[in-house]
Computed example of a mutant assay.
Amino acid sequence: MNRTRLSAVALAAMIALTTACSESEEPATSGADDGEALTVGFSVYDMQFEFFQEMERGTREAAEEKGWEFVLHDQRSDENEMVTGAQALLDQNIDVLIISPVNPEALGPIVNKAQEMGIPVVVDDIGGGGTPYDAIVISDNEDGGVQAAEYMAAQIEANGVTSRKVVSITCEPSAFYAARRNEGFRTAIEAAGYEVVTELSGNSRAEDAYDIMNDALARDPDVAGVFACNDPMAVAAGNAIIDAGMDPVNDIVTVGLNGDPEALTAIESGGLSATVAQDPAGMGALTVDLAEQLANGETPDFDNEAEREVYQEVTLVTSENLADFTN
């Protein structure tokens, strides 16, 4: 082999080696968009409650379907546990934090630390405490109130009741998102020609709602309907109606919101006209979809862009579709 031929071969080998090294040293991209499995940390309000059990299930199953790792932290209804446990999740090399906070006002240190680490934060229900979270998933509470009002108006007509007086029992004043339920109800029921003659806070407690309904009936015995912000209060209002010698389905249309087991049982036994069911499992799955978008650097399609809110649909439950929720 002559010198010219040898130089050409050596040059080709050097180019090939340089190209191979360049290709092998190219930095790998990270994130959900390249198929890499992410790790999602979920800090849940309290796993002793069925609502949050369903939320956890929806979150976990959605993460597992994507091939992601799932790490759970249970706050056990304790603010200190929420703060320390969620921060511990951030230290476990998670890629996104999903949190259903027992106290939204204490989210500040958690969200600040996540931002410093470049970890997106998706809040599920309860509230964001005014922090710069990346997205929050809540039930479409206003629409739930509207559905309750539309059903109530139709049922009052069907029952042949001529009264246009109704009662609205709200949750505790601090329940910012839940307040939208009664706001939606009032707007829709008044548009249908009804008057809200009593609107008081039951503080989300059954015993308070029972007393409110008793007093409302004493003032206006011809009340035609009552909407309560949650199911325990609705069932209690129904009990007050029964104790007054009336029917909470045919005499006074009684509607709650949540889709709790006690409400479903009450509908089946005739102690409640209807409830509007939330979908905690669906909310959990939705937070995972949002987490994926945020991990990819995408901006979610918000229902309320100013507050970065995404709404989960709610569903009216009556005796007609009760089996869909009890089977």
Rank of each mutant, 00 (worst) to 15 (best):
M1E: 13
N2L: 04
N2H: 05
R3C: 08
T4L: 12
L6V: 12
V9A: 13
A10N: 10
A13S: 15
C21I: 03
E23P: 00
E25F: 13
E25Y: 10
A28L: 13
T29P: 01
A32D: 12
D33F: 10
D34Y: 14
D34N: 15
E36Y: 02
A37I: 09
V40H: 06
V40W: 03
G41K: 01
G41P: 01
F42M: 07
V44T: 09
V44K: 05
V44P: 03
Y45G: 00
Q48L: 11
Q48N: 12
F49W: 02
F49C: 01
Q53I: 09
M55E: 11
M55D: 06
G58E: 11
T59G: 11
R60A: 14
E64S: 08
G67Q: 12
E69T: 13
H73Q: 14
D74E: 15
D74I: 14
R76M: 15
N80L: 14
T84R: 08
A86Q: 00
A88C: 02
Q92R: 04
I99F: 05
I99G: 02
E105D: 14
L107F: 01
L107E: 07
G118E: 09
V123A: 05
I126G: 00
G127K: 09
S139A: 13
N141Y: 04
N141A: 12
D143M: 10
V146C: 02
Q147A: 13
A148F: 07
A153C: 07
A153N: 07
A153K: 08
A154K: 03
I156W: 04
R164M: 13
R164P: 14
R164Y: 06
K165C: 13
V166E: 13
V166H: 10
V167C: 09
I169H: 05
I169K: 02
T170E: 10
C171L: 11
P173D: 10
Y177A: 15
R186A: 12
I189T: 03
A191Q: 12
A192F: 01
Y194W: 09
E195Q: 09
V196L: 08
V196C: 02
S201E: 01
S201V: 06
G202C: 00
N203A: 06
R205S: 06
Y210H: 04
D211F: 09
I212W: 00
M213R: 01
M213S: 03
N214W: 08
N214Y: 04
N214L: 09
A216W: 02
V223D: 05
V223R: 00
V223A: 01
G225L: 04
G225Q: 03
G238M: 00
N239Q: 15
N239E: 13
I241H: 00
D243M: 05
D243P: 01
D243Q: 05
G245P: 07
P248N: 02
V253Q: 06
G259E: 09
P261C: 06
E268I: 05
G271V: 12
G271T: 13
S273K: 15
S273C: 14
A274K: 06
A274W: 05
A285V: 03
L286N: 13
V288A: 05
A291E: 11
A291F: 09
Q293P: 08
F302I: 15
D303E: 08
N304P: 05
N304A: 15
A306E: 15
E307P: 00
E307F: 06
V310H: 10
Y311K: 04
Y311W: 14
Q312I: 01
T315N: 04
S319H: 03
L322S: 02
L322W: 01
A323C: 06
F325R: 03
F325C: 01
